[in-house]
Design a protein around this nucleic acid. Structure first.
Lengths: 141, 141
DNA sequence: TTTATTGTAATCGTTCCGGTTACAATGTCA
DNA sequence: TGACATTGTAACCGGAACGATTACAATAAA
């Protein structure tokens, strides 16, 4: 069970836009050929990134441009923007038996720990910005 | 996209066994009625817990008993035993375009951060034992 | 031998993905 | 204005992962 690749697709997309917006017209076809997915997938991703205020898109003429500073967009912001996880990361079996002492209390015993674990993961995502990634990328290029 | 409820089912199962193994015969039907899932789901879960060395199961006569001290089983151990996540928690779009500077380097830029985030979550799971949960449960009862 | 239970295969319906087709709407440019 | 490239979006597909469920042979105890 894995978290959807929408996150890595979105990061890839944003890195392309922030790196090349002044040199190329970043159409969904262009981005799709770098990410290697269907252009419609990129358009869907861009819609989410636009809704989050990270990019602007030009209908008709084509092309995406940044709408927010890369240093002010964290991995967590992107993860949230593309709906990687809705609410809890962990599924819980529904309706444990309230007539059993364990069934009646399993939620109150477990929920906190699972939430803490999820938060630890999300906090790590908050500690990295798109700007950080762009700089790491530039060192490689 | 969520992590399978096998984790919470397994924890619930182990809490039942550790709490009641000296008072009741913990058959898959008994456990299933507390967890409120199909008994076959419990049998499958117990098989994984047995393979991990956490319980012993009596075929024929019926019933599960603990095979390892609850203080020596962490949530992470259970999470691993029931195969909640295979390898990376995050899916990655496969085959980014190697002819693009971003596509060529996206993995080396992102992988480390995603791995760090996953590890932070798993470390939290390592910090909680079944014994901790059992004690919290006893306070509630 | 009867009975309860485990172990396990097989099948089903659901949900979520990403892939893909299709096409109206939009904006640019000749 | 008309041709063209592109976006926005709906629709549908196939595959994968789950948990539910049925079925039944194997096992062990009474």
């Amino acid at each position: 069970m894995k978290i959807t690749s929408r996150l890595t697709v979105a990061v890839h997309t944003l890195l392309l836009v922030s790196a090349f917006e002044d040199r190329y017209k970043l159409t969904s076809d262009f981005i799709a050929s770098s990410v290697n997915v269907n252009p419609v997938v990129i358009r869907r991703t861009l819609q989410k990134l636009k809704a989050a205020g990270f990019v602007n898109i030009r209908p008709g003429s084509g092309g995406a441009v940044m709408a927010k500073d890369a240093d002010e967009i964290t991995l967590y912001d992107i993860y949230t923007a593309v709906d990687c996880v809705e609410g809890s990361l962990f599924n819980f079996h529904e309706n444990p038996n309230p007539d059993c002492p364990v069934g009646r209390n399993i939620h109150s015993v477990l929920d906190g720990h699972l939430h803490t674990a999820q938060t630890a993961m999300e906090n790590e995502l908050k500690s990295v910005t798109l700007g950080d990634l762009a700089r790491q990328l530039n060192e490689k290029i």
